[in-house]
Write a protein that binds this DNA or RNA. Structure first.
Length: 427
RNA sequence: CGGGGCAUAGCGCAGCCUGGUAGCGCACCUGGUUUGGGACCAGGUGGUCGCAGGUUCAAAUCCUGCUGCCCCGACCA
């Protein structure tokens, strides 16, 4: 028998008041719902509810990558400076790269990304072109010493990132790997279920010639996107060579000749790059082709900001009362709100409903706390659990349950089978 | 790194200008009354006032230095 998740046993420190430190809705709500707790600027703890959501995002990312043939590994966060000197990024990367020494004064860095380590792994084995393509990824805590961390986990210094690296014998292979990952990303973001766009991007610090970003559309986004209203064209305004104010772009002709540009704001949650031989040349990561010639391997790299997605999801899905989770990443799908837990027959009925829904494969929480109803309703709204079943002495005896949608506020009197059917469709 | 702001109980704040040894709301604990939308009454716990130094009989309050945090900008996935 499954152990019931009782609200009373979970550490969920919700608060009524907005924290003074937060500006953005997602930041405020993550603190108010007890998801995160700051330890230092840009450095956060993930409390039970927050971690629950983070893990859901992580698992969707993981499953989709696995489906597209990528293999999960785990690389060290602490990296020897040697490798970074070799790629010449030790100086180039700038102050975002946190450098430090160990007890015997050897230089190390805290990994902001892992191209160097990945090359080091690759070059140390005799790998044949016949073994390619290879694509490996990890989901790991990254550290970038941001000039100005802000907006909670949206732009933090320590954050959870999925980074994947592909290896191919030639450009054609690299392009295939890149497209494969792009498709994996599309499938991932489709599954998460947020409104997003793929845009042409500037490769920045990572390098390479071709790169695209995945943006979750939100008014609070830090990036400006130019999107054609009648074609596939979409680009981060950074890459558009206009010498004018971005606002003037709005309504101008799309560079591809189709339609007018619309300016939207986006939160960058994914970035894919064709690196080519940039790193493999500097770090001598070679491979023998069919003629026995050493070739610098063609790489691609692919990032997803896992923790940022959590914040972005809230940014796109909330109201004045709290979070409204998409079903795919909700910490729980259903909250069984027990209005009178001290009455044995009421709590028993709640447990029974819990068990039925749990057995049907839904994540359920039972709010058994001995507090006033209003407090439970309010916490439920802040937490943004998609559905709740309100069960009290007034209605436990009949076969109908009060079924409430967080998104619409709609209340229905339904029997358990009808509830199961609605939830089934959300899966 | 430039500009601005803040630091007083777990959270949100007042007190500072005009020095006299700390207060309000929420939360938390106890008792009672309540109980389907953030209850009420009574009582209670909790603070070296960010740190260091200085002025003074006396500093949360005035002065100097430092640290941390937030906002705008530049920078960046």
């Amino acid at each position: 028998m499954e152990i019931i998740v009782y609200f009373s046993k979970l550490f969920v420190p919700t608060t009524r008041q907005d924290p003074s430190e937060a500006e953005l809705a997602s930041h405020k709500l993550m603190i108010r719902s007890g998801m995160i707790k700051k330890t230092a600027a840009g450095i956060y703890n993930w409390l039970p509810i927050g971690l629950n959501v983070l893990k859901k995002v992580e698992n969707i990312v993981r499953n989709n990558l696995n489906n597209y043939g990528a293999q999960e590994i785990l690389m060290p966060m602490v990296q020897p400076a040697e490798l970074w000197k070799e790629s010449e990024r030790y100086e180039q990367y700038g102050k975002e790269l946190l450098k430090f020494q160990d007890r015997s004064q050897r230089d190390f860095v805290l990994g902001p990304t892992h191209e160097e380590i990945m090359c080091e792994i690759f070059r140390s084995y005799p790998i044949s072109y016949k073994d390619l393509p290879i694509n490996m990824y990890q989901i790991q805590t990254k550290f970038r010493d941001e000039i100005r961390p802000r907006f909670g986990v949206m732009r933090s210094r320590e954050f959870l990132m999925k980074d994947a690296y592909s290896f191919d014998i030639n450009e054609k292979g690299m392009e295939n790997s890149y497209l494969n990952m792009k498709n994996a990303y599309i499938s991932t973001f489709d599954e998460i279920g947020l409104d997003y766009r793929i845009v042409k991007a500037d490769a920045g610090n990572i390098g390479g010639d071709v790169s695209e970003e995945f943006h979750i559309i939100a008014d609070s986004g830090e990036d400006l996107l130019a999107i054609s209203d009648s074609s596939e064209f979409a680009a981060n305004v950074e890459v558009l060579e206009y010498n004018k104010d971005p606002s003037e772009l709005d309504g101008s002709d799309s560079p591809d000749g189709n339609g007018k540009l619309q300016i939207k704001r986006g939160i960058e949650v994914g970035h894919i790059f064709q690196l080519g031989q940039k790193y493999s040349e500097k770090m001598s990561a070679t491979i023998k082709d069919s003629t026995g010639t050493d070739i610098n391997v063609f790489m691609g790299c692919y990032g997803i900001g896992v923790s940022r997605i959590v914040a972005a999801a809230i940014e796109q899905n909330h109201d004045e009362k709290g979070i409204i989770w998409p079903y795919s990443i909700a910490p729980f799908h259903v909250n069984v709100i027990c209005l009178d837990p001290s009455k044995e027959e009421v709590i028993k009925e709640c447990q029974s409903v819990y068990q039925i829904l749990r057995d049907a494969g839904h994540d359920v929480i039972l709010d058994d706390r001995d507090i006033r109803a209003g407090n439970k309703f309010t916490d439920n709204e802040i937490l943004g659990i998609p559905y709740s079943i309100i069960l009290g002495p007034r209605n436990y005896a009949n076969n109908k349950y009060e079924f409430l949608s967080r998104a619409t506020g709609e209340k229905q009197e339904l029997n358990i089978d009808e509830i199961k059917q609605i939830l089934e469709e959300k899966k």
